[in-house]
């Protein structure tokens, strides 16, 4: 599971949960995989992202490195910034671990890099 995907997932679907965001990450196994860098694609991805959530998520698994805490102005033309964003959004892969609902503590397992967001009938 990439951090762009984490940035979009919530547990709002659960009974009694009002926001369900951001999900905490308990990572057991993290790896980095090289993904082709497409500056135009990353530029269009950045406005969709909750940047604070991205930074906290990267920090919580020990991969923040030199990612700026805020989105730089005119980032479209800042290759250095786009490369850092690319790395954190697409190249960090959480292979095994758990996502945890911030309100209920319900755990969603991540196996083989795939988060399982399915709920039991009594949780909906």
């Amino acid at each position: 599971m990439k951090l762009i995907t984490h940035n979009m997932l919530t547990s709002k679907c659960m009974k009694g949960v009002t926001v369900g965001y951001p999900l905490k990450i308990q990572a057991v196994d993290v790896k980095t995989t090289e993904v082709d860098f497409n500056p135009e694609f990353i530029s269009r991805l950045i406005p969709k992202v909750d940047w604070n959530v991205l930074c906290s998520a990267a920090e919580s698994i020990g991969y923040l490195e030199d990612l700026p805490k805020e989105v730089t102005e005119n980032y479209e033309n800042n290759v250095d910034f786009l490369k850092k964003a690319h790395r954190v959004l697409l190249e960090i892969d959480i292979i095994n671990g758990e996502l945890i609902c911030p309100e209920t503590g319900r755990k969603f397992p991540i196996n083989n890099g795939i988060p399982n967001m399915l709920l039991n009938e009594d949780e909906v």
Partner: peptide, 22 residues
């Protein structure tokens, strides 16, 4: 490496959440 998979119930409205129009 340009793929992510999410296991979820597509018939539930809730999975849309922050993915809406993205």
């Amino acid at each position: 490496s340009n793929i992510d998979i999410v296991q979820c119930d597509l018939t539930s409205n809730s999975f849309l959440s922050r993915w809406f129009k993205q």
